[in-house]
Simulated scan of single mutants.
Amino acid sequence: MAEFTKEIERPLGQSAGPRAPRAASRFSGGQIAAALAVLAVLGASAMIAFGEKPFRKPEVVATPAPKPDAPAETGKVAQATPANPAKPASSRPATSAEGPKIIRVQPVESGGQAGIVIQDASAVGQNLSVAHLPDKALIEDSETGPLPIRSADGRRPFDVYARPWSGARGARVAIVIGGLAVSQTGTQSAIAKLPGEVTLAFASQGNSIGRWMQEARRRGHEVVMQVPLEPFDYPNVNPGRNTLTVDATPDENLKNLRWVLSRTTNYTAVMNYMGARFATDTEAFGPIMAELGKRGIGYLDDGSSARSVAPDLALKDGVPLAVADTAIDAIQDRGAILKKLDQLEATARSKGYAIGTGSAFNVTIDAVASWVNEAKKRGIEIVPISAVANDPERK
């Protein structure tokens, strides 16, 4: 076969020599590498989108820490947890204490060394938030009800149930409104309207004394109990049931006194109701004052008898004593009552303090409430009766 030297002269379908081989792939090596890189990026994106977020910090979920069953580590203050939280270990008020109390306070944030606070509960009055709760250490059970007593460590109801006051040396006025629990509406009005600094006195002949006492204490009032004592012209003038008399034996009078004392709790002192004759008889009054001293109760003399032997007996038996300067509502007229209150203010500015007594009449309650608010603006401090009593144990 002739060799055709020119491509154009070559017959169709014939080739001048062996055909050059075709390319092994349609893509170059660079194109393939680029494609693989894209696939790698897409795969990594899928892992991030559907995986467990390996590049994020895990979210912290706050959960309450379980209470440790084991004791706290050495050097830290452990707080005991009662087995039954619904039943506290003691129903004693939080502010009461058996003598000086050492309280260790562990800093919560720093976890540093515990601080120490020494508190003497007998040096301060009862916390008003729990003032209506009796301190069991100051109660003696009796057939007629709870009787006040000194605690085993010597604390007195006179101190524990006292309303706190500033302790300042300025002019002080103590006002005592008596006759509570006799009239339910009058008692409710007195407790609601009178400022907490006013002392309230409960009549032993009254009703629901325990309930009214708790309400009065919740509102900040210091309270005292009124004891019926024999007046002149007795029994024509009769203070009521269980009156202490001159002719009764000491045991009979003590029995009647304890009945009065058991009518309620949480009071600092007792106050005479009438008693012009009884208050002048040392033989009759002596055992009564000794009983008050033994139980840690104060005595408030309404000042109606100039011959009262109460000051001498109280000093002898260690009884805190307060003697009233005047009765503010002998005349039940608002103007007359306000005038008496102004006289108390003048007395307080002269000798440092003054004491006035009254009864739970509507006119008295309204006048006292109004006067107290104005007297405070003039710099007069209205204080409980315990703040102005002469206390032989604190001399």
Rank of each mutant, 00 (worst) to 15 (best):
E3I: 13
K6F: 03
E7N: 10
E7K: 13
G13W: 01
Q14F: 10
P18A: 08
A23T: 07
A23L: 11
A24N: 05
S25C: 00
S25E: 08
G30E: 12
I32T: 11
A33P: 00
A35T: 08
V38R: 01
A40V: 11
V41A: 12
S45N: 04
I48Y: 12
F50M: 04
E52D: 15
K53R: 14
P54K: 03
R56K: 14
V60D: 07
V60T: 14
V61R: 09
A70P: 00
P71A: 04
P71L: 09
A72W: 06
A72L: 11
T74H: 10
V77C: 01
A78W: 11
A83R: 09
N84Q: 09
N84F: 11
P85K: 10
A86C: 05
S90I: 02
R92S: 13
P93C: 02
P93N: 07
E98Y: 04
G99V: 03
I102H: 09
R104I: 05
P107L: 02
V108L: 15
G111F: 05
G115N: 09
I118H: 12
A123R: 14
A131I: 04
H132E: 11
I139E: 08
I139P: 01
E143P: 04
P146R: 01
S151I: 02
A152Y: 06
R156V: 06
F158V: 03
P164L: 09
S166V: 09
R169E: 15
A171H: 05
R172E: 13
R172H: 15
I177C: 09
G179E: 13
S183V: 11
L194H: 08
P195K: 08
G196K: 13
T199P: 06
L200E: 06
G210H: 05
G210K: 12
W212H: 11
W212V: 00
Q214T: 10
E215Q: 14
V224L: 12
D233K: 10
V237I: 15
N238H: 12
N238C: 00
P239E: 02
V246T: 13
T249N: 02
S262G: 14
S262H: 10
T265P: 04
T268Q: 05
N272G: 02
M274P: 08
G275A: 03
A276V: 04
R277H: 10
K294T: 14
G298P: 03
Y299I: 04
D301G: 02
D301R: 02
D301F: 02
V309K: 15
A310D: 00
D312I: 14
D312M: 15
A314D: 01
A324T: 04
D325F: 11
T326K: 12
I331L: 12
I331V: 15
A336F: 01
K340R: 11
L344T: 01
E345P: 00
A346F: 03
T347M: 09
R349N: 07
S350D: 12
S350E: 13
G352S: 04
G352W: 03
Y353G: 00
I355E: 00
S359Q: 14
S359D: 04
S359C: 01
A360N: 14
A360T: 14
V363Q: 06
T364E: 04
D366K: 08
V368T: 01
W371Y: 13
N373G: 13
A375M: 09
K376Q: 13
K377G: 06
I380V: 08
V383M: 05
P384C: 05
A387T: 03
A389N: 01
N390E: 13
D391A: 07
P392A: 10
E393Q: 15
K395A: 14
